[in-house]
């Protein structure tokens, strides 16, 4: 037990939490934008995989990590576009469209991986690059704080800034207002002249770009290669984090951090004598518990309002 406490209160654990939160946070923000526009993006998992592979492939080909990142973001946006086309134009149920995309992504990435790297599991034969880490000036000098917050991957800082941008976008811009209006009541939004389908297209593409950044981080920061199904359910955890965060940017950030904590804990406890399989369930159980707490709070609120109305 003491050992556990030592681990949790060490600076390296704090650093690890932030490090593993990044991909979840990106995907959760993507989930948030889509959700606020009234469309569920369950394809986040597949989107991250596609972008992770694209980042590796393009960075290896161009020998520029930045172009790799850009390509990963574009790829994410395209997957979002595909989801939007399936669900909004072809009118396929959006959950099933998302499942279809996830299936295509998990098999398709392996197919492409074999074509370019001649390996079905890992991309280590490709000379892909990683995005740089950043030393924060001043903060770097502070003991403990510096060790926790400095020297992260550039995308980690980008994910924190993205929380702010998503917040400003949703609550302070006309387009953000439109997104929220469409999500709250599409008929009402339509009646005041907002093109619901366009707004939802925009939301799903943006959602894809954000998940794409999470994917790029996985293969060009978290590790330096692409591996088969490397996202390991992070896209789904992100859905849960967003739902639990009450579909608000700050709430989503905090819950993502919570999952990051569970994830980091499971990584760290593996060095103790606790069985690894047991520990690996932590993030998923935490997700279920969190989801139930959030949902039950919400139904309680609704019941309260109903009673007041009576």
């Amino acid at each position: 037990m003491n050992q556990l406490i030592d681990i949790i209160f060490s600076a390296s654990f704090g650093y690890a939490v932030i490090r593993v939160t990044t991909p979840i946070l990106f995907a959760a923000l993507g989930s948030l934008i889509a959700d606020r526009a009234g469309v569920i993006n369950i394809a986040l998992e597949g989107t991250m995989l596609v972008s992770a592979l694209t980042g590796v492939a393009i960075s290896a080909y161009t020998q520029s990590a930045w172009i790799g990142l850009l390509a990963a973001m574009i790829a994410g946006g395209l997957v979002g576009l595909l989801l939007a086309y399936f669900s909004l134009n072809l009118k396929t149920d959006i959950v099933l469209s998302g499942i279809a995309i996830n299936l295509m992504a998990s098999g398709g990435t392996v197919f492409v991986l074999y074509l370019i790297a001649k390996d079905r599991g890992i991309s280590s034969s490709l000379p892909s690059l990683v995005l740089p880490k950043i030393q924060l000036p001043l903060i770097d000098q502070i003991p403990v704080i510096g060790a926790i917050f400095s020297n992260h991957n550039v995308l980690t800082y980008a994910s924190l800034i993205a929380v702010l941008i998503v917040y400003i976008f949703l609550y302070k811009t006309p387009l953000g207002l439109k997104v929220r209006a469409v999500g709250e009541n599409p008929d009402a939004a339509d009646s005041v002249g907002i093109s619901v389908i366009r707004v939802q297209y925009f939301a799903l593409i943006t959602s894809g770009v954000l998940a794409g950044m999470g994917g790029a981080y996985m293969s060009m920061g978290y590790v330096s290669w692409f591996a088969k199904n490397m996202t390991a359910g992070r896209g789904f955890i992100a859905l849960a984090a967003e739902a639990m965060g009450g579909a608000s940017p700050v709430g989503t950030f905090l819950t993502s951090l919570l999952f990051g904590f569970a994830d980091a804990l499971s990584n760290n406890l593996q060095s103790l004598s606790v069985p690894a399989e047991f520990i690996q369930t932590i993030p998923y159980i935490a997700t279920i518990v969190g989801l139930v707490i959030y949902a039950s709070r919400k139904t309680a609120q609704i019941n309260k309002i109903k009673q007041q109305e009576k």
Partner: peptide, 21 residues
């Protein structure tokens, strides 16, 4: 590679469920 099957599956799902197809 047999993973090409994943693409077939995805397209099938989308088109079969697509109400406007």
């Amino acid at each position: 590679q047999n993973d090409v099957i994943a693409i077939i599956q995805g397209i099938m799902i989308v088109l079969i469920v697509a109400t406007s197809f």
